[in-house]
Design a binder for these strands. Sequence first.
DNA 1: ATGCTTTTGTTAGAGCTTGTAACTTCAGTA
DNA 2: TACTGAAGTTACAAGCTCTAACAAAAGCAT
Lengths: 222, 222
Amino acid sequence: MGETARSPRERYREQVRDEIKSHAWSQVAATGASALSLNAIAKRMGLSGPALYRYYRSRDELITELVLDAYRDLLETATTAAAGERAPTARLTAVAAAMRGWALDAPHRYLLIYGTPVPGYAAPPEATTIASGIMSVLLGAFAEAEAGRPSKAAAALDRHLGTHRAWAPDDAVPPAALRRALAFWTRLHGVVSLEVAGHFTDMGFDPALLYAAEVDAAITAP
Amino acid sequence: MGETARSPRERYREQVRDEIKSHAWSQVAATGASALSLNAIAKRMGLSGPALYRYYRSRDELITELVLDAYRDLLETATTAAAGERAPTARLTAVAAAMRGWALDAPHRYLLIYGTPVPGYAAPPEATTIASGIMSVLLGAFAEAEAGRPSKAAAALDRHLGTHRAWAPDDAVPPAALRRALAFWTRLHGVVSLEVAGHFTDMGFDPALLYAAEVDAAITAP
DNA sequence: ATGCTTTTGTTAGAGCTTGTAACTTCAGTA
DNA sequence: TACTGAAGTTACAAGCTCTAACAAAAGCAT
């Protein structure tokens, strides 16, 4: 339907770009984004180094593409998981499980988004848009979920979020839901990022149980 | 007192090593660890590139040194903060504040420890030792703090930690304290790491308030 | 004090990287 | 069929880590 008519050249170009990206992903999965080498990709494709620069202006542009793909994939994962459950708490549990699964499935893909930022690199505006889409999934669930009485610190944060909510312009979502979604997100990230970075490996416990407890607590918390 | 008698050569060597490390730190602060260049450091010191290899066998060895320094500094920061307060909750609040301050003071230093792991690089055993020292500070406080009734998921984690506590061999610390310290740590990290990586910048709220709320909740939570 | 030994620093170079410039070859199009 | 533009090539600059071989300097022992 929405398919733009493309000349054979454009078709070929798109195909090669995809093939490059595919090689890039397997290299990222193997050694991480910082070790990504255009030269190595070219060699694996039977091309000479500079040939790739016809398809991606620079290494950064390729990485940006990967970052956006990762964001899009994560958003889709979260959305799909949310669509499978009706009750808000079950939805949040499902989203949380899906997000951890997504992270463990390809740790370097997760780190590409949430890990150490690349030195000179700045995320494109579109990334922010997608990221707020992910937040929307959480916000939707927390807007429906009932909340208890917030603590003093939580209430202070609620007041602040009441006037600093540019990232969640939907007025129907109360500040408490904003805060709970925010905390939900940071708590998931706290466990997953440490797990993915290997900080639990020598500790001997099962991160899945810690994650389950955190997710449960974050959903239940007022 | 414990000072080993050192020959002039050893003194000079140590001095140069320190100077290299100091330049390395300012380079890390400026552009992050992934952009750290021995060559650039050498030039800034008025030396030729390969000269540095007399002092550090490789780039990885220098980074390892930086990582260990960062760990040691963080442990000292946490310990000092804890020493300033007697009541367990006040102690945890102080430690949390100190740790966030430490992270914001030099984001790349924080990311050197908790960010994306360097590709081929493996943290030395000493790092694990220091890291468990940091956990001890939290464990000590939570062992004293009184806890409420754990949720189902929390209780399950407690049972698990009862038999998987190699990282906290002190039997006097009950599993619930282990769990709460672990969750405390992951929650702090969740907020700080996202803040340091710049994921809050476009959202317009004050991360300090979110952090305060999370710290409060993590201390209060059963 | 003189000579030996070890450490420090040098340059040269291999092998990798990103990225540019200039040239050739090929393919779609008018 | 001739032309135009894209794709791919090699050559190269500038950077990186790290090794090898050599010169200089400094401590140490006789």
